[in-house]
């Protein structure tokens, strides 16, 4: 199928998904993994990520009739909903603490298996959690979901220039947190 046909196919799918259950399921299956992975990368914990993923798709069901756009825009819309859902989840300090605790336990149990990777993961989540939610979002979308700055800007309703400077600030903060522990993240 050429690109034009694919685009037309996606467009039809988006239109049908509002009223056609089969089309919605198709859309859901295409995007579930990306949403779940994004939630894991933001929350560092799969149970919480599954809960938030469920919330995200329930919101999608409720609001899909309002969505007008391409499938790419749909993906960005999903990330926006997921970002809000994750931030809401993290807003409760107790939840954040629980996540950190679970993270530590996981790291301790994994340390023999993965060694440096598990240790890095623990440090990374502590460093990431110390950032503002917006910075956390930008870091995750950029480095784990591999979105371009323009795409992140669309997800966050901002402009690429602002995202670029916020990314630089977020990285500077992470560097400060991580630099003492990892020589591969220093100048």
């Amino acid at each position: 199928m050429d690109n034009d046909s694919k685009a037309a196919d996606h467009s039809k799918l988006m239109t049908r998904a509002c009223s056609d259950r089969a089309a919605f399921v198709q859309l859901y299956r295409r995007h579930y993994d990306a949403v779940f992975r994004y939630c894991v990368h933001r929350l560092f914990e799969r149970t919480a990520a599954e809960d938030v993923t469920s919330d995200v798709f329930l919101k999608v069901v409720e609001n899909i009739h309002r969505f007008k756009g391409t499938e790419k825009q749909f993906r960005n819309w999903l990330y926006r909903i997921a970002t809000n859902a994750v931030n809401n989840y993290l807003r409760k300090t107790a939840r954040r603490n629980r996540l950190l605790k679970v993270a530590c336990e996981q790291a301790n149990s994994q340390v023999t298996d993965c060694g440096e990777s598990a240790e890095k993961l623990t440090l990374l989540r502590e460093a990431v959690f110390s950032l503002k939610p917006r910075y956390q979002t930008i870091i995750t979308l950029r480095f784990f979901e591999n979105l371009k700055l323009t795409e992140i800007a669309e997800v966050l309703g901002s402009n690429p220039g602002t995202i670029r400077s916020q990314l630089a600030r977020a990285l500077a903060k992470l560097r400060k947190k991580l630099a003492t522990d990892f020589t591969d993240f220093t100048d």
Binding site: V40, H41, Q106, C114, S117, L121
Partner: peptide, 9 residues
């Protein structure tokens, strides 16, 4: 730095 971190994702 993040490339060799393994996520359970």
């Amino acid at each position: 730095f993040v490339s060799n971190i393994k996520f359970d994702d």
